[in-house]
């Protein structure tokens, strides 16, 4: 399994039946493909969809129906379509149960940075500030380190923040970590790795309360 597949196949079990869920651009939008076809969930896409579902067969693909990342989606029975003001009213009124979102950096306090790397890559805020500030539960999906192998899970974010103290859980390609009062608590390991090796790839201090894939 690739790092992305490990994250996605673990992320899918975060979705509680009957809930309303937003999947952010990047890894999170791909979670939809890991859900069973009959799974009871309403996927909200901030471009104006409640009830988005997996890509249709080629002959039924609609060029006027995409998710926020540009992927072609279909609609489930009972879906609704609306403008961007209504879409963000749903978000700001805290009607979403869960948002899964990507990160440039995330830290031990649950701060999130994912919109701006000054002078290098600033994709923009998109829906991230409102999602991060207003969703009941935020799960970050991220590789544990960046392409250069530097930690993305930090003591304190250094990039401009998307939102303060908003993240509940981090799912990386190595572990599942909760943001708790005492800092980051490792709940599960997704690979065979020692506590020391996991800590070595993490700038934030970890405490361990693990089950699964122990070394």
């Amino acid at each position: 399994m690739s790092a992305a597949e490990r994250i996605l196949s673990r992320a899918v079990s975060e979705i509680i039946p009957g809930s309303i869920v937003n999947l952010g651009i990047g890894l999170p939008t791909q979670v939809i493909h890991y859900l069973p076809d009959d799974f009871d969930v309403q996927i909200h896409s901030e471009n104006g969809i409640l009830g988005a579902w997996k890509q249709s067969a080629p002959e039924a693909m609609d060029p006027f129906l995409i998710d926020a990342a540009g992927a072609y989606v279909s609609l489930r029975e009972g879906a609704s379509l609306f403008d961007s003001a209504v879409s963000f009213a749903i978000i700001r009124r805290a009607r979403l149960d869960l948002t899964m979102i990507g990160a440039f950096e995330v830290d031990a306090l649950g701060n999130l940075a994912n919109w701006k790397i000054p002078g290098k890559f600033s994709p923009g805020i998109g829906g991230a500030m409102e999602l991060a500030q207003k969703t009941k539960r935020i799960v970050v999906l991220t590789t544990h380190t960046d392409k250069q192998g530097r930690p993305k899970i930090l003591k304190n974010c250094r990039l401009p923040l998307t939102a303060k103290i908003c993240v509940n859980r981090i799912i990386s390609d190595l572990a599942v970590m909760d943001v708790a009062a005492q800092g980051l608590v490792v709940r599960e390991k997704l690979v065979q790795i020692s506590d020391a090796d996991l800590q070595a790839q993490t700038e934030a201090e970890l405490t361990f309360a693990t089950r699964g894939a122990e070394s």
């Binding site: 901030e46 963000f88 009213a89 805020i125 409102e130």
Partner: peptide, 22 residues
Amino acid sequence: VIDLMNQGVLEVEFHPQGMLAE
């Protein structure tokens, strides 16, 4: 477009999406 912004050729003003809508 990100490159044109970084080079200072294009001025870009970012808003949170729902704030822009509102």
